[in-house]
Simulated scan of single mutants.
Amino acid sequence: MVALHCDGSLSDDKAGFGGLIRDDSGDPLAAFVGIGDDLSVLSMELMAIYRGISLCVDKGFYDVSIRSNSKLAADILNGVIIGPWQILTLKSKIHIKARQKSKKKNIKARLLRSKEFIHAWREQNQPADFMASFPTDPSGILWEPESFPPELAILIKQDKEFVTYYRM
């Protein structure tokens, strides 16, 4: 199972999201950054999850632990609460993407064999937090580990080594 760490960010002039896919040893497999047009942190959290699931499917990762530091997003996707009406379309898109059918030989199989939506404490989500506020253009950024910015590589290394994270 891979871990998909996601985060959304909102500032005065930008709505953004980002995420990091890691293997079961904590080593990074890919990272992404995007911008949104909905000025809602919850929407950006859900956009990060949607984009992250899409990336996992594209890369052939079918067992995914989806982690967000938004307990609200995790509760909405787990069906604990319905959530505000403004995000219901995005919520449906996430669930559809997680259940997407295979187009090979008319086989109706889930592309994600297993998934879980987990609330991860902010301290466990520092690399995704960094990416959610990373500057990008409308097309976004997709990084492979060898092309990570140095700051991100350091955050991932510190996270893997359990260095305490203090958010300012």
Rank of each mutant, 00 (worst) to 15 (best):
S102M: 09
A153W: 03
A31G: 13
A48T: 08
V64N: 04
A15C: 13
I35G: 04
Q124G: 11
K108F: 11
E146F: 07
P28H: 03
D13I: 02
D58R: 15
L42K: 04
S68A: 14
A31T: 13
G140E: 08
I21H: 06
G18M: 03
K104P: 02
K59A: 12
R67I: 12
A98I: 04
L10T: 00
L88V: 05
P28Q: 01
S92N: 15
D63A: 06
K104F: 14
D75H: 05
D137H: 14
I21E: 04
M47F: 13
S147I: 09
I53F: 09
A128K: 09
R67K: 15
L20Y: 03
D23R: 01
K157T: 08
E146P: 01
S9W: 05
D27T: 03
L29T: 03
S54A: 10
S114M: 09
K59C: 13
Y50Q: 12
M168H: 10
D129M: 00
S102I: 03
S70L: 09
A109T: 13
K105C: 10
A120Q: 08
K108E: 14
I35A: 05
D12A: 13
L55V: 14
H95C: 08
I53T: 12
D137G: 13
L72I: 13
L155E: 01
A73R: 02
H95G: 07
I118C: 08
L90C: 06
K157W: 09
K157Y: 11
Y50H: 15
K105D: 15
D7A: 10
G60R: 12
N78H: 04
G16P: 07
S133R: 11
L55D: 12
S68V: 08
S40C: 07
L10M: 07
R110C: 10
K103W: 04
R22N: 02
I35N: 03
S9R: 01
K14I: 00
I154T: 05
E151N: 07
I66E: 04
G79Q: 03
C6P: 10
G16I: 00
D75Y: 01
S147H: 12
K160H: 05
D38Y: 07
